[in-house]
Deep mutational scan, measured.
Amino acid sequence: EVYKVKIKIERVLPNGEKVEEEITIEVEGMSEEELLALARELAAEPGVRIKEIEIEKLPP
């Protein structure tokens, strides 16, 4: 199964400015739980906050 994972994050820059970013990846052969863990890892940097995680199962 192939999933499209869209992660919206908010990053706080050293000057205090907040910037929103969106990361989209396609992943194959992982469960939804593994995808959530991967998304959290991607956003685990200091000053980064996850705003939204969207997981979509793509048709075969």
Results as ranks from 00 to 15, higher is better:
Glu1Ser: 12
Glu1Cys: 05
Glu1Ala: 11
Glu1Asp: 10
Val2Ser: 10
Val2Leu: 12
Val2His: 15
Val2Gly: 11
Tyr3Trp: 15
Tyr3Gly: 10
Tyr3Gln: 11
Tyr3Leu: 13
Tyr3Pro: 11
Tyr3His: 14
Tyr3Arg: 14
Tyr3Glu: 04
Lys4Cys: 03
Lys4Arg: 10
Lys4Val: 07
Val5Thr: 01
Val5Phe: 03
Val5Leu: 13
Val5Tyr: 03
Val5Asn: 00
Val5Cys: 03
Lys6Phe: 07
Lys6Leu: 13
Lys6Gln: 04
Lys6Trp: 07
Lys6Cys: 03
Lys6Arg: 09
Lys6Ser: 09
Lys6Asp: 01
Ile7Asn: 00
Ile7Leu: 04
Ile7His: 00
Ile7Lys: 00
Ile7Phe: 04
Ile7Asp: 00
Ile7Glu: 00
Lys8Met: 03
Lys8Ala: 03
Ile9Glu: 00
Ile9Asn: 00
Ile9Val: 11
Glu10Phe: 04
Glu10Gln: 07
Glu10Ala: 02
Glu10Trp: 04
Glu10Ser: 06
Glu10Thr: 05
Arg11Asp: 00
Arg11Lys: 10
Arg11Gln: 01
Arg11His: 02
Arg11Leu: 03
Arg11Val: 03
Arg11Ala: 01
Val12Glu: 13
Val12Cys: 04
Val12Thr: 13
Val12Gln: 13
Val12Gly: 03
Val12Phe: 08
Val12Ala: 10
Leu13Asn: 05
Leu13Pro: 01
Leu13Arg: 11
Leu13Val: 02
Leu13Cys: 06
Pro14His: 13
Pro14Asp: 11
Pro14Tyr: 02
Pro14Met: 07
Gly16Lys: 02
Gly16Ile: 00
Gly16Pro: 00
Gly16Asn: 03
Gly16Phe: 02
Glu17Val: 12
Glu17Ile: 13
Lys18Tyr: 14
Lys18Asp: 02
Val19Arg: 10
Val19Asn: 04
Val19Phe: 05
Val19His: 08
Glu20Pro: 03
Glu20Ser: 07
Glu20Cys: 04
Glu21Leu: 14
Glu21Met: 14
Glu21Asp: 10
Glu21Ala: 10
Glu22Trp: 08
Glu22Gln: 13
Glu22Ile: 14
Glu22Arg: 05
Glu22His: 10
Ile23Gly: 00
Ile23Ser: 01
Ile23Ala: 01
Ile23Tyr: 12
Ile23Glu: 01
Thr24Ile: 11
Thr24Arg: 03
Thr24Tyr: 09
Thr24Ser: 06
Thr24Asn: 05
Thr24Gly: 02
Thr24Trp: 05
Thr24His: 09
Ile25His: 02
Ile25Val: 07
Ile25Lys: 03
Glu26Gln: 12
Glu26Leu: 12
Glu26His: 08
Glu26Pro: 01
Glu26Asp: 06
Glu26Tyr: 10
Glu26Ile: 12
Val27Thr: 11
Val27Met: 14
Val27Lys: 06
Glu28Cys: 04
Glu28Trp: 06
Glu28Ser: 08
Glu28Thr: 14
Glu28Leu: 15
Gly29Ile: 04
Gly29Trp: 08
Gly29Ser: 12
Gly29Asn: 12
Met30Ala: 05
Met30Lys: 07
Met30Trp: 13
Met30Tyr: 15
Met30Arg: 04
Met30Pro: 04
Met30Val: 06
Met30Asp: 04
Ser31Val: 08
Ser31Phe: 05
Ser31Pro: 14
Ser31Thr: 08
Ser31Lys: 11
Glu32Ser: 12
Glu32Ile: 14
Glu32Arg: 05
Glu32Lys: 08
Glu32Asn: 15
Glu33Tyr: 08
Glu33Gly: 06
Glu33Ile: 05
Glu33Trp: 13
Glu34Thr: 12
Glu34Lys: 13
Glu34Arg: 07
Glu34Trp: 15
Glu34Asp: 08
Leu35Pro: 02
Leu35Val: 07
Leu35Arg: 02
Leu35Phe: 11
Leu36Phe: 04
Leu36His: 09
Leu36Gly: 05
Ala37Tyr: 09
Ala37Lys: 11
Ala37Phe: 15
Ala37Pro: 03
Ala37Gly: 14
Ala37Cys: 11
Leu38Phe: 12
Leu38Trp: 09
Leu38Met: 10
Leu38Thr: 07
Leu38Lys: 09
Ala39Asp: 00
Ala39Met: 15
Ala39Gln: 04
Ala39His: 03
Ala39Phe: 09
Arg40Ser: 10
Arg40Asn: 05
Arg40Met: 15
Arg40Phe: 06
Glu41Asp: 14
Glu41Thr: 15
Glu41His: 13
Leu42Pro: 01
Leu42Val: 05
Leu42Glu: 02
Leu42Asp: 00
Leu42Lys: 04
Leu42His: 13
Ala43Ile: 14
Ala43Asn: 08
Ala43Leu: 07
Ala43Tyr: 11
Ala43His: 08
Ala43Lys: 04
Ala43Gln: 06
Ala43Trp: 07
Ala44Val: 12
Ala44Ile: 09
Ala44Lys: 15
Ala44Asn: 12
Ala44Arg: 14
Glu45Pro: 08
Glu45Leu: 15
Glu45His: 12
Glu45Ala: 13
Glu45Met: 15
Glu45Arg: 14
Glu45Tyr: 14
Glu45Asn: 09
Glu45Cys: 09
Pro46Leu: 14
Pro46Ala: 12
Pro46Arg: 15
Pro46Ile: 13
Pro46Tyr: 11
Gly47Asn: 09
Gly47Lys: 03
Gly47Phe: 01
Gly47Arg: 04
Gly47Thr: 07
Val48Ala: 04
Val48Asn: 03
Val48Glu: 01
Val48Gln: 05
Val48Cys: 03
Val48Arg: 03
Val48Met: 09
Arg49Tyr: 06
Arg49His: 14
Arg49Cys: 05
Arg49Gln: 11
Arg49Ala: 10
Arg49Gly: 03
Ile50Asp: 00
Ile50Thr: 01
Ile50Ala: 01
Ile50Met: 02
Ile50Glu: 00
Lys51Tyr: 06
Lys51Ser: 07
Lys51Gln: 05
Lys51Gly: 02
Glu52Tyr: 11
Glu52Arg: 14
Glu52Phe: 13
Ile53Ser: 00
Ile53Val: 08
Ile53Asn: 00
Glu54Trp: 14
Glu54Pro: 01
Glu54Asn: 15
Glu54Gln: 06
Glu54Ile: 15
Glu54Lys: 10
Glu54Arg: 15
Ile55Asn: 01
Ile55Asp: 00
Ile55Ser: 03
Glu56Asn: 06
Glu56Gly: 11
Glu56Ser: 13
Lys57Tyr: 12
Lys57Ser: 07
Lys57Cys: 04
Lys57Met: 15
Lys57Asp: 03
Lys57Thr: 05
Leu58Phe: 10
Leu58Cys: 04
Leu58Asn: 04
Pro59Phe: 14
Pro59Lys: 14
Pro59Ser: 15
Pro60Gln: 11
Pro60His: 09
